[in-house]
Write a protein that binds this DNA or RNA. Structure first.
Lengths: 215, 215, 215, 215
DNA sequence: CATGAATGAGAGTTCATTCAT
DNA sequence: GATGAATGAACTCTCATTCAT
């Protein structure tokens, strides 16, 4: 996919530029989607176009780096919530944190939906996130707070689904996702004898034979 | 945006090519999203690039034609279900029909989710769809089968959300959306005194400051 | 240049269509230049695009046919004026007739200026026109009404020059060319001992190695 | 029409390429008219197609840059001639300079003659040129060296007319325009009581309802 | 290291011309 | 004979990526 993105640089200006770039890219992708050009991102970060490619060996790599940041952030939040007293509340807080991150970044969702854009690292981060979600869900499940056949994979998938449900409203009502989070949470905590009509997903398939991203 | 897309042609070869084109475009957009090039669609339909532009005066027009077909299909399904005996079941069937269309078609989701891709006609069709959804929801609501504060707009938004929830699984488990439809349905029919923490969306905002699709 | 444009057809509807086309093309070229598309001309003539190519085997041929019509018209006018009583007046009337024809048709000038657009037939017609102009000029010269070293070729060239001088004004002042015709005529009839600083053109070179017109 | 064409660059290679490009474009436009493609110009300059668009944000901008250069050159020549001792000679020299530029450049004529090709900047430059021509003409007029009703606008229009008169000859006789300049000059300096049969142009109409040039 | 100039593949779109109906 | 559908080369312009400065 890409040569290999250089690791985090050591020189202080390089570190600063990397930060600048990630922020600018996140903001720009968030506002306008994955189609914004590298040139715009560079300009928005106040650096030259070449600098983008020094730090990230392709547009796909830049996207992956942003994804990674967000996934890590959410994973940390989830890990912290494992310590929380109320498992059901912890699960709900985790989902709220996740949707909020997704909502902040429109590109995130586009990328999660497109396996072709994902790097190996992103896939690994998603799997780690799924593991944390599984632990949180298991705790709540054990308490009887969620349906017995709801899994951590379900929870992760729902994050993206909730964001997409609310997406068209977010321009005018940035908090509207809370409505759909509640609906979804009521769905997974519904006191119902019926189990769901389709079995829980076994795997979270993220690889794909699609063509490369080109821009 | 477009000069004016010629109406359905009368000559038999033209009719055939138009059909070929719509099918190829629907399939290609469905599989790979709105970014597929006109050239690929043409090739896939076995016609020359120019023929695409004879039938649809721009890429946006072609996309709109396909969207309109699907939206109309779903609207019809909804209208038919207004006659059904069981309002709750009718609503669920409508949602199933909707998600199934979304699932079939990746471009559909992109267009519905991205105002910048929408033509006026598409917006109108979405609004008509929302109206049908509202009627179906109202019937179920009157019966006490769904929460009092759930609206037709919620239902339409959920269609896309459910599809996105299941999206990563669809490659390996094409029916997985049924699981999340059930979850969502349980969410909107949950017997809960709490009303949702965020008020129902007033409007379905589909206009956008973005530039129109160009290619 | 072109296969061979079919001669004037015999069937009455074909004759009518040919007339319709020539008129529409002349009018359209005149108004908007040689860049108008064949499709527009066809539409403007109320016939199909195919019909244009039945009558004229290429766009260049259509242009040539129009040119020929105008050149013939002017040649006839010139021939008639050979009989006029006042040679100077006859020459001036000839020039007025010529400029008026040029002014009527913007494309005419573009074509006359671009040897690549000219067919053999057009070149021949221009040479015939030059011969008539030469006769008219010779008569006036013999009377002492024009400078001794002014030739028929000069006169023909001036027609196009006068038209171009006035061109930018013609939209708002369609008769403005009369001003520049007068200036030019005063120039060639000026009572001056000096002969012109550059000898009269020997030939009217109209062939060219330029690329073909394509449209 | 154009985003904004970047100013003259500072890096030496860019400066060189910009020069190469302007020269190639000027030469190519001059020889073959405004219809030459950007691709050809790029090839002719020995650079990639993209480089053209880096330096000039559209074809129209490139054309405008070249036109502006020539118009400024001529305006400067005119301004310098305002200091000349002999007003009539100065006017003639100005016209000679102008025709020479026109003769060198076929695109120049097309642009000046076709309002649809003009940018605002070009129109302004033409108006400045007209003002200089008016001063030169006024000086000559005050001396009685030119007809009382000949204006600077006439002079500017004549530049193009003279070029077009000589155009067909220029391939074989590149200096032939001097003949027609003399004729025209004798026309505007003719010692005649008659005023011209059509009043002087009030304005130099350069705006147009036509679409802008696109390529 | 940072820069932004250069590149060229590829996008959407137009249109003269051909040819099946 | 007339039509207009099909074609595909050509055009302008964009942008990820490379590389000289």
């Amino acid at each position: 996919m890409s040569r290999t993105t250089p690791a985090v640089p050591s020189r202080s200006d390089a570190v600063r530029n990397r930060r600048l770039l990630l922020d600018a890219a996140a903001r720009t992708f968030a506002e306008r989607g994955v189609e914004v050009s590298i040139g715009e991102i560079a300009q928005c970060a106040g650096v030259g176009k070449g600098t983008v490619f020094r730090h990230f060996s392709s547009k796909a790599d830049l996207l992956a780096a942003i994804m990674l940041g967000m996934l890590d952030e959410l994973e940390s939040a989830g890990t912290a919530l494992l310590e929380a007293g109320d498992p059901a509340l912890a699960l709900r807080d985790f989902m709220a944190a996740g949707v909020e991150i997704f909502v902040r970044d429109r590109a995130f969702c586009e990328v999660v939906g497109r396996p072709s854009l994902q790097s190996e690292q992103v896939r690994e981060a998603i799997h780690r996130l799924r593991d944390v979600a599984e632990e949180l869900t298991a705790r709540a499940r054990r308490q009887g707070a969620v349906r017995p056949d709801v899994t951590g994979t379900d929870v992760v998938l729902l994050l993206s689904g909730i964001q997409h449900t609310a997406a068209p409203l977010l321009v005018t009502e940035p908090e509207a996702w809370r409505r759909y989070l509640e609906l979804a949470f009521d769905g997974i905590t519904a006191d119902t004898r019926r189990s769901l009509p389709y079995p829980p997903p076994r795997r979270l398939p993220l690889a794909s034979p699609d063509a490369q991203v080109d821009g």
